[in-house]
Design a protein around this nucleic acid. Sequence first.
DNA 1: CCTAATATTTGGACCGTTCCAAATTTGGTA
DNA 2: TACCAAATTTGGAACGGTCCAAATATTAGG
Lengths: 351, 351
Amino acid sequence: MGKARVTVVDIAKAAGVSKSTVSLVLQGSSLVNDVTRTKVSAVMRDLGYVYNRGAANLRQAGANSKIIGVVVNDLTNGFFAELAVGVDMVVQSAGFVQFLSNTSESLDRQREVIASMREHGISGLILSPARGTKAADLKPLVSAGIPVVVAVRNVPGAKVSAIVSDNHDGVFAAVRHLVSLGHRRIAFLGGFGDTAVFKERLDGYRDAIAGCQLPADETLIVDAAPSRAGGLEAIGQALMIADKPTAAICFNDAVAFGACDGLRARGIEPGKDFALVGFDDVIEAKTAVPALTTVSVDPQGMGRRGAQLLLKQISAGKPEPETIVSSVRLVVRESCGASREGAPPAAPQAV
Amino acid sequence: MGKARVTVVDIAKAAGVSKSTVSLVLQGSSLVNDVTRTKVSAVMRDLGYVYNRGAANLRQAGANSKIIGVVVNDLTNGFFAELAVGVDMVVQSAGFVQFLSNTSESLDRQREVIASMREHGISGLILSPARGTKAADLKPLVSAGIPVVVAVRNVPGAKVSAIVSDNHDGVFAAVRHLVSLGHRRIAFLGGFGDTAVFKERLDGYRDAIAGCQLPADETLIVDAAPSRAGGLEAIGQALMIADKPTAAICFNDAVAFGACDGLRARGIEPGKDFALVGFDDVIEAKTAVPALTTVSVDPQGMGRRGAQLLLKQISAGKPEPETIVSSVRLVVRESCGASREGAPPAAPQAV
DNA sequence: CCTAATATTTGGACCGTTCCAAATTTGGTA
DNA sequence: TACCAAATTTGGAACGGTCCAAATATTAGG
């Protein structure tokens, strides 16, 4: 039950040196004599000294607070939790601690949280922005010279670094895979048309369709909420058109699951009568029935690389905005009809 | 791009008052005249002032740093991510921020992280302890008078508050449910015998068996790693015994999934030929085939209540250790053989 | 044994805010 | 108009470190 906090002067007194010397020991300076150092260290241990980083930061003029802020839009979503873990790994081993907050897609929450982090003097921020985040929301940070890395979703117009996955490439590969299985009528389901991510994935789809000499058919593109419910709705709409698709690329895995539901409700078996590909490779993708073929994005790796980028910018004086696109990998499972055991692909014309 | 940081004296100067007055405004004191307050506030806005909480904490002697630490053993696990989100909710709306770190079950990591948080002057800690955490690990915190709430797993001997789920009750209810479906030979699979959680769940099992006048048979209890692999192994062992069980309570959902694998490998269909109940209600439980009957524990609710408890202790002077047991709910799905549609239960004697 | 170097230690100012006691202003009343 | 109480405002000392220039100790060379 230590009454008062132990401070450097306490241990200076006890060790018979000045507080300056204690401070020197604290920062591992080579200026201090070894015997002094050991004596001081011993006293620190004995008295149960705990370093007060807040006090230190006060004098050391902001920059190196050893705190980095992490703000995610939905920690409940395994994808973002993994991202945070990836960040934590590198941040922690670089001797920083992370301030983590969850915004639940609320812009107000996000604003509050970022403000609070500023007050605590974070030396950098990794942000997976809530939907609708504008460049203006990040303005105060960047004009204060605090490095910011946005992850997953880009913030148009903001002069900050970003780490995003290769949306174009992922969908491109998925389409080509479906084409190689014999499909010619491939739909693109789900996602909100106003987001950058949607545009990128859709461009990947269009480019692949064009690259395979297939006719572009805008009716095959149906946008909807990027959720299970949205997928259900989207597949319904896709099956209404005259020349029905035999396969679909889904905006993300949740949409793909919804599409499964919708297919089954119509007596169509996904993976057998209809091919489906998702995006993200969420945790349930591999255990679902049928196991979902999807584009895997390694959120933890993104977190790690994002954190590395941030740390680099922190140590460099002026942060030079930089964008990393994280590459992506098609994971072939059952829902696209190409079983790994080499079973013959489902006949693509039947629906 | 503001060169130097704006401080209270800057705004005092600009507003033509003293820094004391500015400080008063900052803390919303009623001592300051309204016209002064508005003028000062305006200047703060104009100059882009940001409050320096570190400096404030320095003077305000520790207690109210507005930071609470959250340490979880595995953020990748949806269960703990939900827990953290629950904590964040109440912590955030109480004007605190959370320092979150992940230990990946490493005691060293945990030690480092807790030390680092102390240096940052957290006013309380919520800890989901890594396996093997000893009371001694928390000693420094409690003797410094910092409130600690451990969640999910208890730390034996530590004089701290705890919030744990009602393990006894959950398993008790599960066993009674199986008995009501006609089962008489019910196994208990998985879990490490040396953990408190295991003991509690096993006690629930034993008490329910006894309460239903069924013979206690220790060979029906097989411990194994609390993982999918452990479940696979455990079910294999359980099926070796002469008078085979027709149902099993699994230590957690992962074990239950492993048990499913094991049953299928022997041509036994879980949910039809054999009843299985899990614990935790992880996210895959409801989408698995068959959907898993399990004991649901609402991690987010636990997080919220744990945080409330912590905040209470922070505002109270001396933390009085207190234990909350969070109640638990049996979610009946398909794996126990009792379909919600009222189909007749599987014949319990056949295996 | 003295002196210049080199190695080590030290006093005090300072970081941005809060707190306290004292000073100043304001308002009401005799 | 003088005087007292209430309402506001204010200077300066903390808080617990770091930093710098200057002081002191030690060592080597002559």
